[in-house]
Design a protein around this nucleic acid. Structure first.
Lengths: 211, 211
DNA sequence: CACAAAAACAGAACGGATTCCAGAAAGCAG
DNA sequence: CTGCTTTCTGGAATCCGTTCTGTTTTTGTG
C-alpha cells in the first residue's frame, strides 16, 4: 500500500533532486521551448532516473507547474519585503503587472510554456494551479494594499485583473496582439480596481435564447 | 511539390468527410472529454483513414479548432440575424456572454477541450486561433452595436472583454471558481465597456524593479 | 472510354510520455 | 553491524499521436 512519493521533499538529497529537476527544466524551456523539454533528457540532466523524475512530478506538466510554484513563491517573498511605489492601488497594481509582463518578455519560450500550463483545466492539475494562482493573488493583494488593507470590493476584483493579465500575456505570445496592445489591455484591466458599486445583482440579464 | 490538402474541402464528398470528422469528434469530446478523443478511433467513426484524417486536420488540436470554427461561424450567422435585446451596449454584451456561458455549462467536457485549445500559444495554431477569435469578436461587435455602430473605444475594449470571458470560463472549468463567481467576473468585465477615457498614456508606470 | 494526377486507404513504423519491473542503494530501528 | 523498508535506477514495455509506404480509388480531362 505505501507509495506516497515526495510531493514535498524532506531530506537534503531529495531537496537537491527536486531543485535540480526544476533548474534543468527551466533552462531547457528557456532555451528551446516546450518541445525541447523531454522527460528522458530532463532526467539525465537532473541526474535522476526517469522513474524518480516521475515520482517527484507525476507528469510533464507538473514539472512546469513546479517551476511556477517555485517562481511565484520566491517572487512573493521578494515583493512582500518592500512596499510597491504608486499613489493608488490601481497604480501600484498596474505598475507591478507591467513590470511582470516586461520580465516575461525576456523569456518568451519559458513564458509560453508556463502560460499554457496555467490555463489547463484538467482536474488533476487544479490543486496545484490553485496554489499558483493563490500565490500570485497574494502578491497582487500586497501590491495593491501598499501597506494598508484593501477594500473587500477590490479584493473581489483582483482575480479578474489577474485573469486579464494572463490573457493579455497569452494573446501576445500567440502573436495575436503586440506588446503595446498587451500593455494596453493590462492597463485597462487594472482600471477595474477603480470601479464603483462592484456588487451587481445576480442574473438580471439572462433572458433570451442561449448562444 | 503538389500536396496541398483540403484545408477547405471543395467537393461534396470532401465536405462530407470534413463534416463527419467534426461531428464524430464533437460527440466523442462531449461524451468522454479530451482523453476519449483518439485519432485512430476518430478516423474509424468518421469513416476515413488515419492518413486522410491528418490530411484534413494536421494535428489533433486542429480538429478541436475546426470544431470551434464551425460552431462560432454558425453562431455568428445566427446572432447577426437578429438584434440582441438590451438597453445599452454593456447590457447586451453582458447578457449575451452570460447566455454563452450557460450554454457552455451544459457541455463541460467539450467546453474544457475547446477552451484549452483556444488558449494555446503555439505559432502553428495562431492563424486558426485568430480566425476563431475574430468570429467571436464579430459576434460581440454585432451584439454590442444593437443596430448602430459602436464607438472606437468600445471596439478597442471588446477583445479584453472576450479575454475576460474566456478566463472566467477556464477558471470555472478548472474548479477554481464557482459558476456564480464566473458570472460575476463576466458581469464585471463587461463594465469595462462603460469606462470613460479609455485611451491611456503609454508607459507612465514602468519605473521600479521588474518582478 | 482511357489515362494521369490527386485523394484515400490499410497498416507498418517512429517518437516521446508514461508505466512497469527486478535489482541496487540509502535510511533507519534494534 | 543487521535486517527491513523506502527510494532510486536502468531499461524494457505500453500507449497514442504522427508520419511513412505502397496500393487502390476517385477525379478531371481529352
Amino acid at each position: 500500500m505505501p507509495q506516497a512519493g515526495p510531493a514535498v521533499p524532506s531530506t537534503a538529497a531529495q531537496h537537491g533532486r527536486h531543485d535540480r529537476i526544476l533548474t534543468a527544466a527551466t533552462s531547457m524551456l528557456a532555451a528551446g521551448g516546450e518541445d525541447a523539454l523531454q522527460m528522458k533528457d530532463l532526467s539525465q540532466r537532473a541526474g535522476v532516473s526517469v522513474a524518480t523524475l516521475y515520482r517527484y512530478f507525476p507528469a510533464k506538466d507538473h514539472v512546469l507547474l513546479g517551476i511556477l510554484l517555485s517562481r511565484y513563491s520566491s517572487a512573493l517573498t521578494r515583493v512582500t519585503a518592500e512596499i510597491t511605489p504608486g499613489a493608488t492601488a490601481r497604480d501600484r497594481v498596474t505598475g507591478h503587472l507591467l513590470r511582470e509582463f516586461r520580465a516575461q518578455q525576456r523569456e518568451p519560450r519559458l513564458t509560453a510554456a508556463l502560460s499554457r500550463v496555467i490555463s489547463e483545466t484538467r482536474r488533476s492539475y487544479s490543486e496545484v494551479i490553485e496554489q499558483v494562482e493563490h500565490l500570485h493573488l497574494q502578491m497582487l493583494e500586497h501590491v495593491a494594499s501598499g501597506g494598508a488593507p484593501i477594500s473587500a470590493e477590490q479584493r473581489q476584483l483582483l482575480p479578474v485583473v489577474q485573469a486579464i493579465f494572463g490573457a493579455a500575456t497569452r494573446r501576445w505570445l500567440a502573436g495575436v496582439s503586440s506588446p503595446a496592445q498587451a500593455r494596453f489591455e493590462i492597463r485597462v484591466g487594472c482600471r477595474l480596481l477603480d470601479l464603483p458599486d462592484v456588487a451587481v445583482a445576480e442574473d438580471a440579464l439572462l433572458a433570451g435564447p442561449a448562444n
